[in-house]
Design a protein around this nucleic acid. Structure first.
Lengths: 146, 146, 146, 146
DNA sequence: TTTT
DNA sequence: TTTT
């Protein structure tokens, strides 16, 4: 068992890319507020954890089409550590949550254009082209977790 | 909510260190086998995820005293991304699971000296001195998650 | 490990009772919508699961003071099966989630009087008197899960 | 989200039944030990929770073929409350975990005949006929959760 | 780099 | 760097 459950808000709009074979991949970071009391606020500690999340295929497109900066989500997935070689020859690690479920929670930030009222992530059209993967190196086409 | 649940085996004996104020910290990596079918075995993909885990205080000592390479564990905790400055001035990220519960599961590897048959992690004496933190930079003394 | 995580909405206002020794107990039911597709809507199947939740002590009072029918919550707890003897002498089972954490999620139903904007369940005054436990027999005073 | 994760041992051999349309259903109870300290042992409280679990189709057959009384399992599923009318006309509730994943954990009880060493639940032949559903009324044929 |  |  390798299970992660996060509830929080997107720090930015999701970034949707496509692999060479055409699979959609969405990346975003979820800010999870720490419970009051877990850390003393007065000693300059962070008050949130920022967790990189990656979503594949249909769910990626749904997230790209329905989530924006500030959106509240409930994410279920697994922890994955990818490894890659940095330019200086050293080995680097990228840890992220590969989500297999993203629920859209209540209070959603406003923006021009109508978003759906919330609900589960499913069914949606397909957007367009690539971008840069902000969480590390290129994601290989085969790297589909489920 | 920021919750992680892992079931797997230690890739090495746990490493126990102490902060300046005397708090114990144990670090180990849990190998979580991927379900057959999640990845095709034939395309050179990894068959396990290797997840760094950090444990504090009493639970750290219990882990240090009862777990060894190969021990089967069920870990519950939260995902934490620490940030630090590398020697070359760049910013690096260390992601780990901060465990608040470690259950010892069944089949445990043999070793000289008697280990307990299993059970929950609790109650235990205290070992001794530091070492190096294999997962990143020094863990500050205040960084206690609960 | 005995862990339950639910995201849903209260079907009614929470009911707060007190044990003889004065401990608060809140009871409510969480309606968890099933994912579209898990069940075909067209064969008269329910579209939600209704899960009884029980909360103790300080958290019970916070829930009583901040949640109402329709409130969206994220509940973490454990499953508990209590047993009791029915009037006809037969043995009955009551299964409920004993929550140790209740997060208040976004979109909250309106009602006269100001409720807080959301956040984690903690810190709050104490309400008053008993009522009837809608999920089964009297909860014994000692039955505190944590 | 409606998620349950249990680690424990079967109190009896699984019971495998078949619906009219031929779908396999396995039922068993998982005993989950409570953490020491969660309950004082000295006040006659139970030291374990006994949770009814239901498994469908292929996974049901795998469980029927590989698990026995005492088997250690890690179960992931969802909580379901079924309702039915008792003979006396009153309404009764049956709560159970509908498992979608069952991992076989380490130390497994011995019995004549070779069982596999453990691993994930998948792939297996099919056993035979019905029996009585020990956890409540007949499970309708359509009631397949995934 | 960070959300409300 | 990896466990069974």
């Amino acid at each position: 068992m390798n299970k992660v459950i996060l509830a929080g808000r997107l720090t930015r709009d999701p970034e949707v890319r496509y692999t060479q074979s055409g699979k959609a991949v969405a990346s975003f970071t979820v800010a999870v507020d720490r419970r009051f009391g877990r850390k003393n606020a007065d000693n300059n500690q962070p008050t949130a954890d920022f967790i990189p999340v990656v979503v594949w295929e249909k769910l990626a497109e749904i997230c790209g089409n329905n989530l924006i900066k500030g959106s509240q989500v409930l994410v279920e997935g697994r922890l994955q550590v990818r490894t890659y070689d940095a330019q200086d020859g050293s080995k680097r690690y990228v840890t992220e949550v590969v989500a297999n479920e993203v629920e859209f929670m209540g209070s959603r930030p406003q923006r021009e254009g109508g978003f759906q009222q919330g609900g589960f992530a499913q069914g949606a059209p397909a957007p367009a082209a690539p971008a840069d993967n902000s969480f590390g190196p290129a994601i290989p086409d085969e790297d589909i977790p489920f």
